[in-house]
Computed example of a mutant assay.
Amino acid sequence: MMTTRDEKLVFAVSPAGQGDGVPILLVGVPKGAWEFMKDGKTHHFDLTKAGVPVKLMFFGAESHAAAMKVIDDAMKASGTAYLDERRTDFAIKPRGTS
């Protein structure tokens, strides 16, 4: 299924990050992209093409529990273990702080 430009996520990669050499991915979710994803459709990116060793998949869900169920069901079906890090703070700290 083709998406229109307004249904696509907007993203950029800052390879140097905050000057520490750790890339930062910036993602914008326009209203049209959320509308496209909200019933489970996905947007996905292979950032290895930009030299960043990560692949990302975004999807929409009605609630936190519904999103976790999608992930849990997919991991169980594939036999893949995953870490539940929902209580870990992954916020990017201002430059110069730890």
Results as ranks from 00 to 15, higher is better:
86 R>K: 15
10 V>I: 14
85 E>K: 11
35 E>D: 15
70 V>L: 04
30 P>Y: 10
55 K>I: 02
62 E>A: 13
11 F>E: 04
25 L>F: 01
40 G>I: 08
90 F>A: 04
87 R>H: 15
40 G>S: 09
28 G>Y: 08
3 T>V: 15
88 T>H: 12
54 V>D: 01
23 P>Y: 02
74 A>D: 07
38 K>R: 15
60 G>V: 02
10 V>T: 13
25 L>Q: 04
54 V>F: 01
56 L>H: 00
82 Y>L: 03
27 V>N: 05
90 F>H: 08
40 G>P: 05
58 F>K: 00
68 M>V: 05
11 F>S: 11
19 G>N: 10
59 F>I: 00
68 M>R: 12
78 S>R: 08
52 V>Q: 03
70 V>Y: 02
67 A>K: 02
79 G>A: 03
34 W>M: 12
36 F>M: 12
53 P>G: 04
1 M>N: 11
81 A>Y: 04
49 K>G: 04
82 Y>I: 01
22 V>W: 10
36 F>H: 15
25 L>A: 03
80 T>P: 00
80 T>R: 07
45 F>C: 01
90 F>K: 04
8 K>Y: 05
76 K>T: 05
71 I>A: 06
28 G>A: 11
98 S>F: 14
32 G>A: 10
41 K>H: 11
56 L>G: 00
39 D>N: 14
96 G>F: 05
17 G>Q: 08
79 G>P: 02
8 K>N: 13
1 M>P: 10
55 K>T: 04
95 R>L: 11
37 M>Q: 06
34 W>R: 12
74 A>L: 06
6 D>W: 13
14 S>P: 03
70 V>H: 03
84 D>R: 10
22 V>C: 09
85 E>H: 10
15 P>R: 12
67 A>L: 06
54 V>Q: 04
98 S>I: 12
